[in-house]
Write a protein that binds this DNA or RNA. Structure first.
Length: 358
DNA sequence: CACTCGTGGTG
DNA sequence: TCACCAAGAGT
């Protein structure tokens, strides 16, 4: 009997061990695209409910294209990396308006679209159109680095090329999509970052990492993120049962999401009496401070935020020049706006204070 | 190209 | 508490 190829071993394992995930039961490139974007840097358990919500609300790429960006972001709320949702929405418009709602059918065409990079293009091309092109994601880096003993730093520039070439040598011609699913599933559920199941692994005798006991050091990954501290004082300004909010702009976190009037300070949270903020100096003398929240710690990949919320109520007649882009929203509107999880947590915790708003 | 973009889970 | 991670892409 002939020795099985890497791909055959992998696919046999996959057929016996794969999870039943909804996006694996379709060839619809829209559904596959949706799932792939949701799963970027995101665990299946976290992404799954969002996938269900999106296919429910936006059944086709045209439905997504016709939606308001605000509503798309609202549905995406809590999943993070919000540019994924904004780019996906933009690309849906392109496909609906310029491509007659037809998804491009090749890797080369797919990778041109905003939000579709090398990984996602390969995933859609192979899963939906059976194109022979290897996916290279974190799982693939890990599986290949270990099995073949590749010590190239996966954070380096050449890693993409090295692992991509190896992956494309290994991929099967007859079922590239299944091969791609299989190697990722194997990485995600068996050849895991910590505590892989090497003892009973399919590649037990062939795996370089296992032979040399290097599971813990492969794949090699340099770069450590340095985390900045930021201090946010939010002023939750209420007037006539409405709250003042604005959409966040580019070049900072949470682009496209809405938050309250924000005063950011450098080394510590604000001391009210010392602020030289013009708007606050207008507001505070004519307002009632209804509550000062506890300090929230919110952790992001490259920064940790300490935040405090000041619930400030203005009397009905007070009028003041609003900062650019800020508007008063009813409670219903506030609920419907896409917001950072930090804001959502505050509103939930202080729900009683806002109960009278509706 | 090094850096930035969230959130929640884990050892 | 903390470092690291999880189906990457844009700039």
């Amino acid at each position: 009997m002939e020795r099985q190829t890497f791909s055959e071993v992998l696919q046999n394992w996959y057929h016996r061990n794969k999870r039943d995930l909804p996006w694996r039961n379709t060839k619809d490139p829209y559904m596959i695209w949706l799932s792939e974007v949701i799963l970027q840097q995101t665990r299946v358990v976290q992404g799954l409910p969002y996938y269900e919500k999106f296919v429910e609300k936006y059944a086709t790429v045209v439905d997504l294209a016709n939606a308001d960006e605000k509503d798309v972001l609202r549905l995406w709320q809590g999943l993070g990396y919000y540019s994924r949702a904004r780019n996906m929405h933009q690309t849906a418009k392109i496909i609906a308006d310029e491509l007659n709602g037809e998804f491009p059918g090749t890797y080369a065409e797919l990778v041109k679209l905003k939000g579709i990079g090398p990984y996602t293009a390969a995933a859609i091309a192979s899963f939906a159109f059976d194109e022979k092109v290897a996916v290279v994601d974190g799982n693939v880096y890990r599986v290949l680095a270990r099995v073949f003993g590749v010590e190239t730093d996966i954070a380096s520039h050449e890693a993409k090329k090295v692992f991509s070439e190896l992956a494309n040598e290994l991929i099967s011609s007859n079922s590239p999509g299944t091969h791609n699913q299989a190697i990722m599933e194997f990485g995600a559920t068996y050849c895991t970052p910590a505590n892989p199941g090497c003892m009973f692994c399919l590649f037990h005798y062939d795996c370089e990492a296992n032979a040399k006991g290097k599971q813990a050091v492969l794949p090699v990954k340099s770069k450590k993120v340095k985390v900045k501290k930021r201090y946010f004082d939010y002023f939750v300004i209420e007037q006539n049962s409405k709250l003042l909010m604005a959409k966040r702009g580019p070049k900072d976190i949470w682009e496209g999401l809405y938050d309250f009037y924000l005063v950011e300070t450098k080394d510590e949270l604000l001391r009210l009496e010392e602020t030289d903020n013009d708007f606050l100096q207008e507001v505070l003398p004519i307002a009632t401070i209804k509550s000062e929240s506890a300090v929230y710690k919110h952790v992001l990949t490259h920064q940790t935020i300490e935040a405090k919320f000041w619930h400030v109520v203005l009397n009905e007649t007070a009028s003041l020049p609003l900062p650019l882009d800020y508007e008063f929203y009813t409670w219903q509107e506030v609920e419907d706006l896409p917001k950072p999880i930090l804001i959502e947590k505050y509103l939930k915790k202080h729900h009683a204070e806002f109960a009278s708003l509706g």
